[in-house]
Amino acid sequence: MAKYLFQATYTAQGMAGLSEQGGTERAEVVRALIENAGGRVESLYFAIGKHDLFVSCEVPDNMTTAALGIAAQATGGARAEVIPLLTPEEIDEAAQTPVTYQPPGQA
């Protein structure tokens, strides 16, 4: 399974729901969403700042990840960003993968 970091920023509507239901209940909703899609939550934190929620999780694939993002944002309660996470070993492998690249302005 691939690892992802979801960053969410609540809209006014979402913040009203959080205020009414509380963090524990909303966290359980997020956990259920991910687990019902075959994923696993590693950590979930609320934050103060640009983003209101951070969720580190494992999800089966990009299609499932896209479906989670669509479901979460379709209600209008939050805007979310998804960041794929790579292990140090995956970066090692990527660094050893041959690629051909020509910088702009060089022939």
Rank of each mutant, 00 (worst) to 15 (best):
Ser43Gln: 09
Gly23Pro: 05
Arg31Met: 12
Gly23Lys: 11
Asp52Arg: 05
Gly38Glu: 00
Ala2Lys: 14
Gly23Glu: 07
Val30His: 11
Glu25Gln: 14
Gln13His: 11
Ile70Leu: 09
Glu58Gly: 01
Thr75Ala: 12
Glu81Gln: 09
Val30Thr: 13
Met1Ile: 07
Thr75His: 07
Ala78His: 02
Gly77Ser: 06
Glu20Phe: 04
Pro98Tyr: 03
Phe6Val: 12
Gly17Cys: 01
Val55Trp: 11
His51Thr: 12
Asp92Gly: 02
Thr87Met: 01
Thr24Gly: 08
Gln21Ile: 08
Ala12Arg: 01
Ala12Met: 06
Met63Thr: 09
Leu53Asp: 08
Thr64Met: 02
Val55Thr: 11
Cys57Gln: 02
Gln102Phe: 15
Arg26Ser: 07
Phe46Arg: 03
Pro98Asp: 14
Gln21Gly: 03
Ser19Arg: 11
Ile34Trp: 03
Ile83Gly: 06
Leu86Asp: 05
Gly39Trp: 01
Thr24Glu: 11
Glu25Val: 15
Phe46Ser: 02
Gln7Thr: 14
Glu42Thr: 13
Gln102Asn: 15
Ile83Ser: 12
Glu28Gln: 15
Ala78Tyr: 02
Pro98Ala: 13
Glu89Asp: 09
Thr24Pro: 00
Leu18His: 05
Leu44Asn: 02
Pro88Glu: 04
Thr75Gln: 05
Pro98Met: 08
Met1Gln: 09
Val55Lys: 00
